[in-house]
Amino acid sequence: MSIICLGIEGTAHSFGAGVVSSDGHVLSNIWDMFSPEEGGIHPREASRHHSDIGPSVIRNAMEEASINNKDIDLVAFSRGPGLGPCLRTTATIARTLSLRLDVPLIGVNHCVAHIEIGCLESGFKDPVTVYVSGGNTQIIAYAGKRYRTFGETLDIAIGNMLDTFGREVGMRFPAGPQIEREASNATNYHQLPYSVKGMDLSYSGMLTAANRLVSEGVSLADACFSVQETAFGMLAEIAERAIAHTKKKELLLTGGVARNNRLTDILSGVAKRHNAAFHRVTPPLAGDQGAMIAWTGILQHEAGDRLSVADSSILPKWRTDEQDIVWRRS
């Protein structure tokens, strides 16, 4: 018989609740993104946002899935990695629900959840995953019972870089979609520092130089175009290194920045060159949301994973490769 999991996500700017059944159907997936009028994300303000809107987001998710309290068999929550205040608020809500409904509690790794929901959607069995968001830039693949980070940023995440650049030129958070729109009107490419180290990359030098381009009078469109081409080119290179190195035959693009069409084009070109299948996670499942937490919670639960409330402290620095992926064979 199919079981129903309520998944709660709240590691950074977004709070989400999703209802997923163990046969892999996403019954609902509601989220709300904290988007300040100006400036970036302050962890404390984001956590206040989560506690303010959390209950109504969960209620909406349950209504849309047409379930009530007694239908929930499992509560899963994003235990880390993320911003401490946000994680604490999310964990408190999840613990309370687990105790109140008297159902098991499952702690889910946020990065692992991005991969698993992508695998559910694409049917991929063993992909190289490019996980790109505001706080993460990682190339991940499964090897020896773990999801291992083959490559990552050495300084700032790609989404953070785009947002910081956007803020500098007067865009609102999140800036990625506006940068993509501007870039489509560009006429010239201006060279920016390109920094790849093995399977890692670095964006801080490029960011500084991009800000300088704008202050030197380069058009906004050209600057946005140059930023995208350089940043995505670097990402493509490390993804390609990971594919060549692991010899895997699937490439999965996920995370909030997966919504970018130019990035999608470039990475599908990489996959093609190596005869690998490519999938970009669809927008509703690409960003931070509860369905991915619910689905991964189901996988963990089916593999016998349990978490007592007493042991459910948050893990703000939980690395992707610190968890045995007990539900995967091979």
Binding site: T149, F150, H245
Partner: peptide
Amino acid sequence: LAEMNATVEMKGVDLHLMRRAFETTHWD
């Protein structure tokens, strides 16, 4: 990808990459 005029930071990244290759490819 080799570079000259290596700083402590660049050498640190080089060793970090070496260690990560051990971790991801030869975990045992």
